[in-house]
Amino acid sequence: MAQRLVRYADLVPCRTAFIDTRTPGSTEKENFTIIGAGVSESADQFVHITEPHGFNVGAARQPEGCVNSQHSHETAEVFVVHSGHWRLIFGPNREDGTLDIAPGDVCSVPTRMFRGFEKLDEGVGFLWVVLGQDDPGKVTWAPAVFESAADFGLKLTKGGTLIDTSDGDYTLREAELEAPLSEDDLAQLRTPPLEKLAECMVRFADVAANPASPLAAPGVEEAGLIVPEATADGFAPGPISGWWPHGFNLRLLTLQTGAYVPRHSRREVEVIFVHSGTLEVSWDHGEILMGAGDTLTVPVGLPHALRNTASVPCVAYVVRGGEDVARPLFESGAAA
């Protein structure tokens, strides 16, 4: 189980993950691959947990004013704001509007549209990110990103590998280079209206617990954040359902001081990210105490219990694999 836990303090960043790594305004960003292959273009990217989950988990950490350049994904990209205030910027040239997100907010950006993001306030902020599928594909960059990167000697192959020509690295010079998108291709990656994109965001203050959740108990609340379709464990679609596939559910779990979820197991993959407070996860012969920023992937079928042992509430985001989620299997005698 210790090998399935990634503590915030142990995260290994990569500062050369993408083609915009030397572009002014983007040099200070740190990228993390926590679970899965991710979408990094650099061999320097460290992967914490390689086991396939049906989705990927990564993160970005940036100081004030730092920008992640305009790009598009072929699978779902979900931002969970752990710290800091951020601006999502839409369109290939940042021309299609913005959405501002704050700690606790969640935004799932639709596939096949350009987005970038910028850290707005003082200090360093952290975004926890879920990407769809085991292979989320490669990033599609806006043409202006290629132009800026070329000024600093960075090229990208069609396979998604970064080449640093300024450093004399020509080992891949025979490879075919990725070219900027044509006007016709750009036209296929249109930004939906901002009022439509508003359906893709949930403010932390607006999250509503589901009293029908099998985990609901005194001091325990579970809310649906991304629920693509009605689930077997009693959640209706929404508030983010999406018109593109996600392949997972995202829930918000809140435990008050002393609150307890009895031993139970899951039929699907479950990844827990602690946003605030502490969470004790226990199983036969062991337990782990998680703190803010920690990520744990729980083995399918493992009976485990959850408890808040601290004097402040615990708030955790939970990813469960699949568009549908089965009811948890509580051990005999445990409350369901």
Rank of each mutant, 00 (worst) to 15 (best):
A216Q: 15
A216G: 04
P218H: 04
V220Y: 09
V220G: 03
E221Q: 12
E221V: 08
A223Y: 09
L225G: 06
L225K: 00
L225P: 04
I226Y: 06
V227L: 09
V227A: 01
P228R: 14
P228F: 08
E229R: 10
E229K: 11
T231A: 13
T231M: 14
T231Y: 13
A232V: 04
A232M: 05
D233V: 02
G234N: 12
G234K: 13
F235M: 09
F235T: 05
G238C: 10
P239Y: 07
P239V: 07
I240R: 02
G242H: 10
G242K: 15
G242Q: 09
W243D: 12
W243Q: 11
W243M: 04
P245A: 15
P245D: 15
G247W: 06
G247S: 15
F248Q: 01
F248E: 05
N249H: 00
L250I: 11
L250E: 06
L250N: 03
L252A: 13
L253C: 07
L253I: 08
L253G: 01
L255G: 09
Q256N: 13
Q256K: 14
Q256V: 06
T257F: 00
T257V: 05
T257R: 12
G258P: 03
A259T: 07
Y260Q: 09
V261E: 03
P262K: 02
R263H: 08
R263V: 06
R263Y: 13
H264N: 05
S265C: 00
S265W: 01
S265K: 03
R267D: 07
R267S: 11
E268H: 03
V269R: 15
V269N: 11
V269G: 04
E270P: 08
E270S: 03
V271N: 06
V271W: 00
V271S: 03
V271C: 03
V271R: 00
I272F: 08
I272T: 14
I272E: 00
V274I: 13
V274L: 11
G277M: 00
T278N: 07
L279R: 12
L279Q: 15
V281M: 15
S282M: 10
S282Y: 02
W283P: 03
W283F: 15
W283T: 03
W283K: 10
W283N: 02
D284Q: 14
H285Q: 11
E287Y: 06
L289K: 02
L289T: 12
M290V: 08
G291Y: 09
G291A: 05
A292V: 07
A292H: 11
G293E: 11
G293R: 12
G293D: 13
D294P: 09
T295V: 13
T295L: 10
T295E: 01
L296M: 12
T297D: 14
T297K: 12
T297W: 14
V298N: 04
P299V: 06
P299Q: 09
G301Q: 07
L302A: 07
P303N: 03
H304V: 03
A305F: 02
A305N: 08
L306C: 01
L306H: 07
R307K: 15
N308F: 07
T309E: 08
A310W: 02
V312Y: 01
V312K: 09
P313Y: 11
P313E: 14
P313G: 12
P313K: 15
C314S: 14
C314A: 08
A316S: 12
A316N: 02
Y317T: 02
V318T: 00
V318R: 01
V318Q: 01
V319S: 04
V319N: 01
R320F: 01
G322R: 11
E323M: 08
E323L: 09
E323P: 05
E323D: 14
